[in-house]
Design a protein around this nucleic acid. Sequence first.
DNA 1: TAGACGTAGA
DNA 2: TCTACGTCTA
Lengths: 169, 169
Amino acid sequence: GKQVNGTKMIGQVPGVHVGDEFQYKTEISLVGLHLSIVRGIDYMHKRDDVLATSIVASEGSGYCDRFDFDVLIYSGEGGNGIRKSQKILHDQKMVRGNLALVNSMRLKSPVRVIRGLKRSDYRGKHYVYDGLYVVQDYWEENGPGGNVIFKFKLCRCPGQPSVDWKHYF
Amino acid sequence: GKQVNGTKMIGQVPGVHVGDEFQYKTEISLVGLHLSIVRGIDYMHKRDDVLATSIVASEGSGYCDRFDFDVLIYSGEGGNGIRKSQKILHDQKMVRGNLALVNSMRLKSPVRVIRGLKRSDYRGKHYVYDGLYVVQDYWEENGPGGNVIFKFKLCRCPGQPSVDWKHYF
DNA sequence: TAGACGTAGA
DNA sequence: TCTACGTCTA
């Protein structure tokens, strides 16, 4: 690994606080919040399980994530082909990040949530750490092309500082 | 723009020194060395010209850049299709970055050179600022598929600190 | 080797 | 919308 902040880990990352803001995915990678520069769901092996460490969620990004008070409805990974020029839609599979989120739910293992926010100046994003969530439920939905998409319901762990989102938009 | 260090500029960047090392393209973008995260040649409008500000050069990357003492032979951009899964080779065109380098040669405008070095631990790169160069010549070559590739000869400006490259490999 | 919620500029 | 010397994991 090449992260500066130490090893990949579950839960709170030392030195990173709720509300901390970052310019690039590479920065949240460097501080150890979310190691993958491109994937939305990051995960790691822990004992015999693969558990989610963190997710990057963005409203209105084509993934249709929804933040509603302390609840996040998050879309699984794979199949949607959003980054493809030929937008072929496939069913999402219960593997990798999706499977890690289910395992995290089963073991009540907390997941770091980073919100990707649209910039005011151009089409890119910036990123704000929103704190720890637990996965409470998941289900399948049909995407626009009839393909299977997983949805995960995450609830923000109590006792964390609140974030004034108006400050970041 | 979103760079932290100020506006895009030609020549020396305040606060950045020969030998400074960076982990990611996003970092050299943040400090103002090379604004584009993906392009090898960065450039800007200056009066009625488009001039090169900086290039990222890597030996052994498939682009066949060559460093030889204070001379760099650098390959132009476009056409080579290295990042494509279907490796279709086209002729490079005298546009964008390639044109900017020719303009920089004509006006003897200095170009910042960043060397992309292979990491020891994985397949990615890190980046070291090598200082200012001037473009002294350019020509066409035929690439492996017979396609046209531009080559640029850059010479390192005298009076700059030397770099102990063994330190970085 | 390919896939994944990458980025900026034309 | 596309291209461009991205970057990591499986």
